[in-house]
Computed example of a mutant assay.
Amino acid sequence: MAFEPFFHFMRGIKGRMQGTGLGSAYGGQDLQQIAYVRNLQKEMKQSDALYEPLNQLKVVIFDIETTGFFPEQGDEIISIGAVKMVGATICEDTFYSLIRCEKELSEKIEQLTGLNSEQLKEAPALADVMAQFYHFAKDSTLVAHHAKHEKSFLQSVNWKLFRTPFKYRIVDTSFLYRIAEPECRFNRLEELCEYNRIPVVDRHHALGDAKLAAELWRIYIQKVQDSGCNTLQDVYHRMAKQS
């Protein structure tokens, strides 16, 4: 993966800025990194994505693992995984990183994710990982399974680290299967995978879950096109009619 040089580049900038004392105004965040992330977000062509044909749409399917459900109460992201797709084609380009967490993980989270506190204490800092992730996803539309969880954490992280609102669109995979199969009552990722005969492997691993969600997107992007939706704009209009 080509992120190692990028990671060292960002670490180098961070060290130089902290040496000047300029990072202290943002709780240790260096101003170069903040400016870099803000600039990446300005380059995101969200409006164009609405009208891109679904069979050509570039997306990044991603998933996060967290210590809980409430970022406003101090819960943290501990890993993030992502897969690139173009239309219904899953690309080999993936992203995965653990994220530093100084708190001790609960036994429940350790059992669920397979991660432990010692691993996370040695992991890269959240700001570094998020800068890498935004770089990875900069020319794509973000997609997540039941995206409310991901969106709430990224909104919190963006403001805390980079002092900017999170303006990136996140498309929920449920938009597609609610259009393609409105009678389907499955919601959980593993249920939908089993229903669509997708082998469930590496569940509750951020990259594993991202790969499972990508398989669902691959199937349902074709189904919604067969139903007459050719763009995200069409998907949103159909969802509005069904509401």
Rank of each mutant, 00 (worst) to 15 (best):
F3T: 14
E4T: 12
E4C: 03
F6N: 01
F6I: 11
G12P: 03
G19D: 09
G21Q: 14
G21P: 06
L22V: 15
A25E: 12
Y26H: 10
L31Q: 11
L31I: 15
L31F: 11
L31S: 07
Q32K: 05
Q32I: 11
I34D: 02
A35D: 08
A35I: 01
Y36E: 07
Y36C: 07
R38F: 03
Q41H: 12
Q41W: 10
M44G: 01
M44L: 14
Q46T: 08
Q46C: 06
D48L: 13
A49S: 13
P53R: 12
K58I: 12
V60T: 15
V60R: 04
F62E: 04
I64W: 04
I64M: 00
T66C: 10
G68F: 00
F69L: 15
F69C: 12
Q73L: 11
G74D: 01
G74T: 01
E76K: 09
E76L: 08
I77R: 00
I77D: 02
I78N: 06
A82N: 02
K84M: 03
V86N: 12
V86R: 14
A88G: 05
C101L: 04
E102N: 05
E107F: 08
I109W: 08
L112V: 07
T113M: 13
G114R: 14
L115S: 06
N116G: 14
N116T: 15
S117Q: 07
E118D: 15
E118K: 13
Q119C: 09
Q119A: 08
Q119H: 05
A125V: 12
A125L: 09
L126E: 13
M130P: 00
A131S: 14
Q132P: 04
F136R: 10
A137R: 04
D139K: 11
D139R: 11
D139Q: 07
S140T: 15
L142A: 03
V143R: 03
A144P: 02
A147M: 05
A147K: 09
A147T: 01
K148E: 15
H149P: 03
E150S: 03
Q155F: 02
S156R: 04
N158A: 07
W159K: 12
T164M: 14
P165V: 00
Y168H: 13
R169T: 06
R169P: 07
I170M: 06
I170Q: 02
D172T: 08
F175C: 10
F175N: 10
Y177R: 07
Y177S: 06
I179V: 06
E181K: 11
F186G: 14
N187Y: 12
E190G: 05
C193D: 05
N196E: 15
N196T: 10
I198W: 02
V201A: 04
V201C: 00
R203S: 08
A206D: 03
G208R: 10
G208K: 11
D209M: 14
D209F: 13
A210T: 06
K211V: 13
K211L: 11
K211G: 01
A213E: 07
A213W: 06
A214P: 11
W217M: 08
W217K: 00
R218L: 05
I219N: 01
Y220M: 07
Y220G: 02
I221E: 04
K223L: 01
K223I: 09
V224G: 00
Q225W: 00
D226R: 09
D226M: 05
S227Q: 10
T231D: 06
Q233H: 13
D234K: 02
R238S: 05
R238K: 13
R238I: 02
K241M: 10
K241R: 15
